[in-house]
Simulated assay, not measured.
Amino acid sequence: MWQFLKQFYHKLGSPRWFYGIANRFMPWFLVIGLVLAVTGIVWGLAFAPKDYLQGNSYRIIFIHVPTAFLAQSVYLMMATAAVVTLVWKMKIADVFVKAVAPVGAVLTFLALFTGAVWGKPTWGTWWIWDARLTSMLILLFLYFGVIALGSAISDEKSAARSVAVLVLVGVVNIPIIKYSVEWWNTLHQPATFKLTEKPTMPAEMWVPLLLVVLGLYLLFGWLALWRMQTEVLDRERRTRWVRELVLPGGGARP
């Protein structure tokens, strides 16, 4: 098993091998992710029971919680890739960070926006400088900073190192987001859904929520691989295998 993982790790360092293996996983991620996400969203928005306190306004949870959860997870993935970039200097790790940073920024914005929409009927205001909201806003700025720094440095290796350092500095914000409702007196409620604890909601609510979370992770996987493929082709455009990948007519080989 260890030998297999070692071989897989070394192969992953090859842009050409990564491009090929990504093609195998992407259709599965896309189809299964769409089925799970659409099923969960339709179930949650149309068929889940009303909340006894918040009525129908709580249904935005089926968008808010998955996007907030994934926005933080994406940053942790970037931090892991940043360590690989700095220690082992694997190109694919830097490609991953550059490819998913905009995705993480969009997810964070959606989490903040849906949280504001949910907060209006619940708290009576669109925004408050609550510890959880403020730390999520900082996460959005961190994503913007990663994107801007990567674009500002023309040298590929220098950009990779600088971005990796920034990502690792910013990762301290993730535990602040997670434990903000426990460390400070905030309006934001504790975690609605925890994988390590028994759900406090009835199954008619948490099952569709879980489906959306799983579906969104798979859709992120598809999108990340697609964006990484695009970045790999751009970086390797002068290599023989990329030139061979493109047919004379301009189309790509299957």
Rank of each mutant, 00 (worst) to 15 (best):
M1S: 09
W2C: 08
W2R: 11
Q3A: 07
Q3Y: 04
F4P: 05
K6G: 15
Y9A: 10
K11V: 01
R16N: 12
R16Q: 15
F18Y: 15
F25I: 11
M26F: 00
I32P: 03
L36Q: 06
I41Q: 04
L45R: 12
A46N: 13
A48S: 15
P49K: 14
I60C: 00
I60D: 02
I61Y: 05
P66I: 09
A68F: 03
F69T: 14
S73P: 00
L76D: 05
L76F: 14
A81S: 10
V83A: 15
V84N: 13
T85R: 13
L86D: 05
W88Q: 06
K89S: 12
K98F: 09
V100C: 00
V100S: 05
A101M: 04
P102N: 06
P102Q: 06
V106R: 11
L107T: 07
G119N: 05
W123D: 05
W123I: 06
W127D: 00
I128V: 11
A131M: 10
L133T: 06
T134Y: 02
T134L: 03
F141D: 07
Y143G: 04
G145S: 10
V146R: 01
V146Y: 01
I147W: 07
L149M: 13
V165A: 01
V167K: 00
V167A: 00
V169L: 14
V169H: 05
K178F: 10
S180W: 02
W183L: 14
W183Q: 07
W183H: 09
N185H: 15
N185K: 15
T196W: 00
P199Y: 10
M201T: 13
A203D: 09
M205I: 14
P208K: 06
L210W: 08
G215I: 04
L216V: 08
L219S: 00
F220D: 01
W222H: 10
L225Y: 06
W226Y: 01
Q229G: 12
L233M: 13
R237Y: 09
R238G: 07
R240L: 13
R240W: 11
R240I: 13
W241I: 08
L245F: 12
L247N: 14
G249W: 14
R253F: 13
P254W: 15
P254N: 12
